[in-house]
């Protein structure tokens, strides 16, 4: 397996202290290669969201090791000072709802990330337009998010996650609000983009419609993961 992508070893997260402490993650191991889309499935309270927040550098794990590409970002403590820049430049997020910024048009919603990183506006917008073309929503480039359909909004959200070419995308129930056809369309896009941009994609989902599309699935239960092969059903 390509050494880049994301590798997690023995990741633990404990909330609280003493007798009231709760171990949400009890030693998670996980590896996702560039261009690969894996599913992360588990019942409510199994630790999915906690794992996603740890991977997204939103909360700090208690112990373990996380490697992003060839760089160790966590090893019993953060190894990177600027977590905000890490989230901006090296991790893409796709949420259950698209959560597009309602007062920015489609292009600027996507271009905002490179702009925040200090890229010139024109260059950022140009990259956003290229992604919109790749995702087949270029015709909605000047539209406001409220004027888009659910599927279009989710494609724009995917474009936003991809704009800085991050090595990993974390997708939190990205197909939950969509019907079967649109859900599969989103998964097809995620797979296509993962391959095209060499990005590792972790999809947290409950959605039975899309589970058969994964080649590998991580099941999480009681804070631990175990890996199994998925159906890897074709989108054709």
């Amino acid at each position: 397996m390509n050494p880049e992508g994301i590798r997690i070893t023995g990741l633990m997260k404990r909330y609280g202290k003493g007798e009231t402490a709760v171990d949400a993650l009890k030693g998670v191991d996980m590896q996702v290669a560039p261009g690969e889309v894996v599913g992360l499935i588990g019942p409510s309270g199994s630790g999915k969201s906690t794992l996603l927040k740890c991977l997204g550098a939103v909360i700090e794990p208690t112990a373990g090791k996380m490697t992003l590409g060839e760089e160790v970002i966590y090893d019993d403590g953060w190894k990177i000072k600027d977590l905000r820049a890490l989230r901006r430049d090296r991790i893409g997020f796709v949420f259950q709802a698209p959560y597009l910024i309602p007062f920015l048009d489609v292009t600027d919603n996507i271009a905002l990330l490179p702009m925040l990183a200090g890229r010139p506006n024109n260059e950022a917008r140009q990259r956003a337009l290229e992604l919109l073309k790749a995702l087949d929503v270029a015709h909605r480039a000047r539209a406001m998010p409220s004027h888009l359909s659910g599927g279009e909004q989710q494609r724009v959200a995917i474009a936003r996650a991809l704009i800085n070419r991050p090595p990993v995308i974390l997708a939190d129930e990205p197909t939950a609000p969509l019907d079967s056809e649109r859900a599969l369309a989103v998964m097809r896009i995620l797979n296509q983009m993962a391959r095209q941009y060499e990005t590792a994609v972790i999809v947290v989902t409950h959605d039975e419609k899309i589970v058969p599309t994964f080649r590998r699935i991580y099941h999480i239960r009681d804070g631990r993961t175990h890996e199994e092969a998925g159906e890897g059903r074709s989108f054709e």
Partner: peptide, 16 residues
Amino acid sequence: VREIAVLKLIGTRNRT
């Protein structure tokens, strides 16, 4: 709140 959370998550500075 949700938009601000998203902005923070994607790396917007607090001062921005």
